[in-house]
């Protein structure tokens, strides 16, 4: 019988060495996706490289004016960082919609990103917020925008031997606000039928100066929709602007019919959720002006 090996490296370099030595290895953070997949026979790694034991990969720290979130930081830990919650409430809320409390005590945003489900809740929020991730690998370190990482269901733009070290969020701009909403048939413990993350900035005159709109579960990967953001810029996020934004969001959708909902409904929901998220983000931005 073949049995996977388990490794708990103490350092990033040790982890990278293990990854290089075990071509079939997978990185284990919270394990809330990976372990389930292994038990169901959908994944069979030759080795588990547990990154929770690496100093510095767990926890939130200030990075200049922004934030660096270790790849092994569980979602519920984000709630304990008051500065992060104040700056990027949409990101923290998105991460804390995943699964149940018990799942979120283990699950990480890095894992949510690497699992590359089109319906991952934290990913549209991170994309809207303009997050990047720091990747380490055999060739050294590189920083990639979160929006560029997902390549399709279950596929991310990581090279062999690479792992995500941390997620980086910029400082919240003056007058900035963000929000993430998802649609699920139940009230919790479900997978998004559609999701929308919005981050925007209001100028001193109340006009929107920048906006990013990202959608989940409506295409093979989470989508950044520049046309939707552009529809808000220069407006007071009024009804007409929201309608144009929602229409642009819906136009970008390329969903499928599946067990979680129909394509028609997903497109409908993308507009509804983007609009509602934009209104929450606007309210937050007004409070931050």
């Amino acid at each position: 019988m073949t049995t996977a090996t388990y490794h708990a490296p103490a350092s990033l370099s040790e982890a990278l060495g293990l990854l290089a030595a075990h071509p079939g290895a997978q990185v284990l953070a919270g394990g809330t996706d990976l372990i389930v997949q292994v038990r169901a026979g959908r994944a069979a790694p030759s080795a588990f490289i547990d990154i929770k034991t690496i100093a510095g990969l767990t926890g939130v720290r200030r990075s200049g004016e922004g934030f660096a979130i270790g790849a092994a930081t569980p979602c519920t830990a984000l709630l304990k960082d008051a500065a992060l919650c104040a700056a990027w409430p949409g990101v923290v809320e998105a991460a804390n919609l995943i699964g149940s409390v018990q799942v979120r005590n283990r699950a990480t945003m890095g894992g949510n990103l690497c699992n590359a489900s089109p319906a991952a809740d934290s990913v549209p929020a991170l994309i809207a917020a303009g997050a990047t991730c720091l990747i380490a690998g055999p060739q050294g370190e590189r920083e990639v925008a979160v929006t560029d990482l997902p390549q399709g269901p279950g596929r991310v733009a990581l090279q062999p031997g690479e792992l995500i070290v941390e997620l980086r969020l910029p400082a919240r701009p003056m007058g900035g606000g963000d929000a993430y909403l998802r649609g699920i048939p139940r009230s919790e413990m479900d997978i998004a039928v559609a999701g929308a993350g919005v981050a925007l900035v209001l100028g001193a005159d109340g006009l929107c100066t920048a906006a990013r709109v990202a959608l989940g579960a409506v295409a093979p990967t989470a989508l950044l929709v520049p046309e939707a953001g552009a529809a808000l810029v220069g407006t007071r996020i009024d009804d007409a602007a929201l309608t144009r934004m929602a229409a642009a969001a819906q136009a970008a959708c390329k969903p499928i019919d599946d067990k979680r909902g129909t394509a028609v409904y997903r497109i409908h929901m993308a507009g509804v959720l983007a609009r509602r998220a934009a209104l929450i983000a606007r309210d937050r931005a007004e409070n931050n002006a």
Binding site: P185, R186, S187, E188, M189, D190, I191, D258, K259, R260
Partner: peptide
């Protein structure tokens, strides 16, 4: 929200409590 969903190949597409949507307490 409950109900079996089959894919085109005649296989059950939601064979688990994640996608076989029984009510949760907060519903």
């Amino acid at each position: 929200n409950e109900g079996y969903v089959h894919d085109a190949g005649g296989r059950v597409a939601n064979a688990g409590f994640l996608d076989y949507r029984m009510p949760v307490a907060s519903d």
